[in-house]
Nucleic acid binder design. Structure first.
Lengths: 216, 216
DNA sequence: CTCTCTAGTAATTGATCGATTACTAGTTTA
DNA sequence: TAAACTAGTAATCGATCAATTACTAGAGAG
């Protein structure tokens, strides 16, 4: 009797048995969503297990500890962000987009990642966990990796990179605070989100209404 | 036998007995520091009690629940932020500072609040807790309160307010990730912090070295 | 001096959570 | 087809934590 409470990542038909590598990726996806919403300490391995439709001990045994799972989630998120940015830089290098468009396109690539909210949110939850020895160290390294990527690989002036990251942190904060799901037509909230999410606003509010009415 | 492990807020000589109102404020100060570092779920009432030099049940009984204590910490932090901003606006209204300086002075007022890191950090920990019904609701209201204050009372154009908040969120993230305490001379980290903290960089690194070598 | 608050603690409790152990069913291989 | 490995679960354990209870000491009022 597998009473399963599935979560965001587009529930594929519940399969009973699955190669470890595939199960691993599935767990990471759900863990990303739950950690992203509830934070590291606020998330239980049981919540992740339920989201992934498996038993709690299996989650723990596959990753060793909750902490190791969280670090893997962070690394996966960071990896996806870096891939997205590098792709834009590649398009610039190959002349497919103009140099003066680079910043805007990178910004769009960032906002596009909201679609899977777990990516940006689990990263942010890691950033906020700076006091933890192992998570904090990984988070700082990851943050600086992004900074160097934008400055050195993309060739963006340092203070523009700072501004870019600042915009990103505001976006993260608005998502983490749950503004898209709970603004209830508030005029100030609407204005601030319009300015922050730009053309992606519709998508953000759409993803919000999908993901807000769910358990976990 | 009062074996006391005091925390940041400039340890006054340990007094045995104290009026409730005074004790309350003392607890709020220490709770702000601990919640700011470890987050809501990551903090135990015992850690707050040790920081404040009292017993764990006393902490709980004075505020009812951990959640109520956290909300009070948030409200106190928000209050201090608003007071700081209103003071700058008042100086502008009374002509003591020029209108075109307003943004810079508000920014400085924000950065000055880093001195007591608990204020900005406990607020940020609240922002990140958007999924929680009661904390999230309060956090959203507080965030929008700051937005309206800057836009309507200070009269700053909406998109400049957005930029201002973005800069603030980057500062918060750099503090929360523990960059000032752990950058270890890294070139990129130094550059980013210089750009973000500006003239306050020295003070930030100083507070860091004071507050990093402590328990809790 | 004693009565009565007020400020505080020690002890404990029930719930929760991460982790471990011991098991089972399904799949592959020889 | 039997052996060996892989994918999974159920049961449980020890630790931790917020909260409650029941107590004690000190200060002020009469």
């Amino acid at each position: 009797m597998s009473s399963v409470t599935n979560d965001t990542p587009s529930d594929p038909p519940i399969r009973e048995r699955m190669p470890a590598a595939e199960r691993r990726e599935l767990i990471l996806g759900h863990a990303s969503a739950v950690f992203g919403r509830r934070g590291y300490s606020g998330t239980t391995t049981e919540q992740i297990a339920q989201a992934a439709g498996i038993s709690q001990p299996y989650v723990v045994r596959m990753f060793g500890t909750k902490e190791k799972l969280f670090v893997e989630v962070m690394e996966r998120a960071l990896g996806k962000l870096i891939v997205a940015f590098r792709e834009i830089i590649r398009l610039r290098d190959s002349g497919e987009i103009a140099s003066n468009e680079l910043g805007a396109r990178l910004g769009q690539a960032y906002v596009d990642l909201i679609e899977d909210r777990g990516i940006l949110m689990s990263l942010m939850q890691g950033f906020i966990q700076g006091h933890d020895d192992v998570i904090g160290r990984r988070a700082r390294a990851g943050f600086l990796e992004i900074y160097r990527l934008l400055r050195d690989e993309a060739g963006i002036p340092a203070d523009d990179v700072r501004g870019f990251l600042a915009d990103g942190m505001l976006i993260n904060t608005l998502l983490a605070i749950g503004m898209p799901d709970n603004f209830e037509g508030d005029e100030a909230a609407t204005e601030l989100m319009t300015l922050s999410f730009g053309a992606k606003l519709d998508a953000v509010l759409c993803v919000a209404s999908e993901q807000s009415t769910r358990p976990v």
